[in-house]
Design a protein around this nucleic acid. Structure first.
Lengths: 207, 207
DNA sequence: TCAAAATTTGACCTAATGGTCAATGAAACT
DNA sequence: AGTTTCATTGACCATTAGGTCAAATTTTGA
C-alpha cells in the first residue's frame, strides 16, 4: 500500500537531499516564498532533475509536512497515564523543548503553515492531532480529579506547553536579540519552564 | 521632520484603505506570499493607483511594521514598578491577550516577520525592544529580590507571556481545530493564563 | 559488452508579479 | 470659467517562477 519509498541508491540519496534542502528553504521562507530554484540549488540538482523526483512544489511540501506530523506528535504520545502526573508533564515539556532545540526548522515549517491558515494540513489537524490531544487531556483531567495535579484546563495547559517551547524555535531571532550575546536560550528555557510548570501543576492542598 | 502623513482627505482615505488591505494580506501570506494585486483588490484600487500612494511593496510593509511596533510595545511600557507585583504582571498578561484577541493580524504580521529571520526589523528589535525588556526585567527582578514575587528568570517570564498570549492569535487555526466548535478560545485562555501565572508568581513562603 | 532502464539537463513555455509611464479624469483654487 | 494640481488607469515591460520535453548521459543487469 505505502509505496513511494525510494528504491535505488541514487533515488534514496537525491530524495533525501531534496527534502533536506526543501526543509531549509520552506521553513525560512514559507510555501509561497520558497522557490524551486532555491531548493534545487541547495540540493545540488538542476530544477528539472528535482522535478524528476517530485512532481511539483506542492508534492515536496506535502512530503515534508507528512514526515513532520509524525515526529511532532510523538512526545505527546509518550505521556503515560501510569506515571507520576507532575513528572509526566514536565517530561513532556522537556521533550518538546528538545524538539525545538534539535529541529527548529521543522518547528518553523509547522508555524509557517499554521500562520497562513493551515491550508494544507487542516485535515490531519482535525483527524490526528485533535483525537490525540483529547485523549491526553482526558488523562490529565483524570489526574486532576484525583487531586494529583492542580486544577487547570488540560487543553489550554497543552497549548501553553506548545506555545512556550516552540517559541524558542520559532522566535529564535527575537529571543537572541533580546537576551543579547552570551546566553544559551534553550538551556535557560529548560530550567525556567520546568520551574514555571512545576509550580503551577503541583497541587496546593496536601492529599 | 516627520512628514509623510497624508494631507488631503482623499489621500487619508486611500492610504488607510491600502494599509488595512495590506495588513490583511501580509499577515495571511507573509511578505513574499503577498501580491500587490491582492492588496490593490482589497483596497478597491488599481495597482498603479496603489503605487501612487506607496512607492513599492517594501514601503507598504515597512509602514505596517512601524505602526505595529508602536502598538506592540505599549502594554509592556505600562508595567508599573509602583504597583503590586503579581497584579501588575497579571494585568500585563491580560493586556497582551487582549491585543491578541483584538489585533490578531498584527500579531501574525509580526510572527511572520520573525519567523523569516526578521530581515526587516532586526534593527528596531535591538534598539527598541531589548532596552525596554531589560528595563522591565530589572523591575521584576527587584520585586523578586524583595520577596514579593516567586523567583523566576524575568526575561524568560516575559518570553513565556509573549508565547502563551500570542499563541492564541498566531495559532488560532490550530487552537480552534483542537478545541472543536463551541469554544471561545480567548475567554478560556484568559482564565487559564491568569491562573497559571498567578500560581507560579505568588511567593511560596509567607513574608 | 550491450541494450534497456534510470537519470540528468538545456531550451523552452506560460502565467504571475513588481513596477513604469503617458494620457486622462477629477478637484481645488483664483 | 479656467488653470493648475491631484488622482486614476490602460497598456506595457522585465523578471521570476513553476513546470514540460526531447535529447543526452549514466547506471544496471543479462
Amino acid at each position: 500500500m505505502t509505496r513511494s519509498k525510494p528504491k535505488t541508491r541514487i533515488q534514496q540519496r537525491n530524495s533525501e537531499a531534496i527534502l533536506e534542502a526543501a526543509l531549509e528553504v520552506f521553513s525560512q521562507a514559507g510555501f509561497r516564498g520558497a522557490t524551486l530554484d532555491q531548493i534545487a540549488d541547495r540540493a545540488g540538482l538542476s530544477k528539472p532533475n528535482l522535478l524528476y523526483y517530485f512532481p511539483s512544489k506542492e508534492a515536496i511540501h506535502a512530503a515534508l509536512i507528512a514526515a513532520l506530523l509524525r515526529v511532532w506528535l510523538d512526545p505527546l504520545r509518550e505521556l503515560d497515564a501510569a506515571g507520576d502526573p507532575v513528572e509526566e508533564i514536565l517530561a513532556y515539556v522537556r521533550r518538546k523543548l528538545e524538539l525545538s532545540r534539535d529541529f527548529p526548522r521543522e518547528s518553523r515549517l509547522f508555524a509557517n503553515e499554521i500562520l497562513q491558515g493551515a491550508p494544507r494540513i487542516e485535515g490531519p489537524l482535525v483527524d490526528e492531532l485533535k483525537p490525540l490531544v483529547d485523549e491526553k487531556a482526558a488523562v490529565i483531567a483524570g489526574w486532576m480529579a484525583q487531586g494529583r495535579l492542580a486544577t487547570l484546563d488540560p487543553h489550554h495547559l497543552i497549548f501553553s506547553i506548545w506555545a512556550t517551547t516552540q517559541h524558542y524555535a520559532d522566535f529564535d531571532v527575537q529571543v537572541r536579540a533580546v537576551l543579547g550575546p552570551g546566553h544559551d536560550p534553550f538551556s535557560e528555557a529548560e530550567s525556567y519552564l520546568l520551574t514555571l510548570f512545576r509550580s503551577s501543576l503541583t497541587p496546593r492542598s496536601s492529599n
